[in-house]
Structure formats: C-alpha cells, structure tokens
C-alpha cells in the first residue's frame, strides 16, 4: 500500500469508525429489515423479498402522506427562497439597521422547532381567536390547528418563521460578494433598480440560489419536528408527513418495522433523486450563463 494511503487511513479511522457504527451500519440494517416482515416486537422474522415495496404501491395512507409532503416541499422551496431573497435584497439596500434586522430575522433559527411549535400553538389557539374578536377578522377565528385546510398553512407559517433567516444569511453573503463597481456601472448605464437586480445581480448569485433550493429541498422532505409539535399529524392523519408516517408505522399502529424501513428507503431514494436532478439542472444553467 502506498504510504500516503496508510496515513490517510490513520487520520480517517476515528471518524470512519464512529460513522460506520452509528450511521452506516444502522442504514444498511434498515435496508435489510425492509426485506423482512419484522414487526419490531417479535425477536424473530423472515425474509420476504420485495413484498414490502410492492405493498407500498397501493398503500393509500403512505401515498397520501407522500403527496402531502410534496405539496409542503413545493410551497417551502418557493416561499422560503422568495422571502429570504427579498429580505436579503431589502436589507442590503438599506443604509441603516442592517445588522439589527439581520439579527432579528435569524433569531427563530436558533430555536428548537419543538419549542417554537408549542409557542405557535399558543398563538394559533389562544391569540388568534382573541384577535378575531377584538378586530373582527373572521379568518383568524378558524381552527388553525384542527381544520386540515388551515393547519397546512399553520405548519407552513411555523416552518417559514423558523427557517427563512438561514437562507437570508446565505443570500446576504452572496449579495455582499458582488463587486460594488458592477452595480455602479449599471447605474451609469441608466439601469433602474429592478433592471440592475435582474441583469447584474441575478447571474452573480445564481450559485447561491442553487444552494438555497438544495437546502430547502433536502430539509423540507425530512420535516418532522414542526408537524409533530403543532398538529401531531392530525386531525387523524390529515397533516401527516412522510417522516411521521414512517415513525408511526414503526412504533404505533401494527409496529411493522420491516415495512416502515421500506418506506424510509423510498424516502431516501426520493430525496437523493430530486436533489440530484436539481443540482444537475441548475449547475448546467449556471454554466450557460
């Protein structure tokens, strides 16, 4: 073996060991369980081939939760990035208060979404009805936790509140890396603000947008805490996201761990494919520009 490889192995060993034990092994174990009928309770189980995966194809509950998650991801990717970018552009164009605003908007990102969820539950269930009464705003008097039509938006509000700041920071950093002369030059050429943003700023921050969308995609597919603390997936399973469906399949209902593992594999493959496609497409776009 080459000497450099020996040193490499030595340096990587501690990390690789812990990573193998606590990530790789359980992940491969999960794949193996997905081919069995282990119910999570019985010590014994049998190999059942792909039958768990075949069953998934017409598991209405799972498909519904997958679609619900997809809808959530779609909203999140668009709103998170649009709001974050808007805030970043406005903050950067202001001459005063940049730091204060940045600090305030990032603050919710520091908070656990379990605690944040409980606080918002207070807002939705106690503050909203009182506001509705005081100011006569009917929409605030809806059941924001109990009516699935509205609770989708409650979850969305909580998630955006807790995550927009992070993307905003990314976009601010990207904007700051644009050389000032370029914008000056555009102004001299008679471009207005929007034209400057579109023709000068956009091509320069497209790389950050790729990152922003990637972050949105990969985190919102895994969403759990927000839903867990706000609606618990309910009423019934009306707001159940995939990760919660997996959790419940494994530990509640009939505790079919093998089946739940198959769902987890599907989730992993979905995230891998979608983010892969996104990166591929957007990288190509970046090169074109």
């Amino acid at each position: 073996m080459r000497n450099s490889n020996k040193v490499l192995i030595l340096f990587c060993l501690p990390a690789f060991l812990l990573y193998s034990i606590f990530v790789l092994y359980p992940a491969l174990g999960g794949f193996w369980y997905s081919l069995t009928n282990w119910n999570g309770l019985n010590p014994t189980y049998d190999y059942v081939g792909l039958s768990n995966y075949l069953e998934l194809l017409d598991d209405k509950v799972f498909i519904t939760s997958l679609l619900f998650t997809a809808k959530y991801v779609l909203y999140m990717v668009v709103l998170q990035n649009v709001i974050a970018l808007t805030l970043a552009i406005i903050i950067e164009s202001l001459s005063k208060g940049k730091k204060v605003l940045r600090t305030i908007f990032f603050f919710p990102n520091m908070i656990s979404m379990i605690v944040g969820g409980f606080i918002w539950m207070f807002i939705f269930t106690k503050v909203f009805p009182q506001l509705a009464e005081m100011f006569g705003i009917a929409i605030l008097n809806e059941s924001w936790i109990g009516n699935p039509e509205y609770s989708f938006y409650s979850i969305l509000i909580l998630s955006l509140w807790g995550s927009v700041g992070y993307l905003m920071i990314i976009y601010i950093a990207a904007l700051q890396s644009i050389p000032g002369q370029l914008i000056e030059a555009a102004k001299i050429d008679g471009a207005n603000k929007l034209q400057t943003i579109w023709h000068v700023v956009r091509p320069l921050i497209i790389n950050s947008i790729t990152i922003g969308i990637f972050v949105s995609l990969s985190t919102s597919f895994k969403v759990f805490d927000q839903v867990y603390s706000l609606t618990g997936g309910g009423p019934g399973r009306a707001t159940q996201v995939v990760s919660m469906n997996i959790y419940m399949e494994a530990f509640a209902y009939q505790s079919r761990y093998g089946y739940a593992s198959a769902k987890a594999i599907i989730l992993f493959v979905t995230i891998l494919l979608i983010t892969g496609v996104q990166l591929f497409v957007m990288k190509r776009k970046e090169v074109e520009m």
Binding site: V23, Y25, P26, A27, Y33, K222, S261, I265
Partner: peptide, 20 residues
C-alpha cells in the same frame, strides 16, 4: 461514502441506531 450519508433521513437509521 461520508458525503452521501448527509442525505440519509434520520428516520431511516432510527431503530438500527437504538439497537446498536
């Protein structure tokens, strides 16, 4: 191998992790 795992959802390794 390290990088690919960054996309594995926690729920995929949960039970195996508890067991190990």
């Amino acid at each position: 191998i390290f990088v690919i795992s960054m996309l594995i959802p926690f729920h995929s390794i949960m039970i195996g992790l508890v067991k190990v």
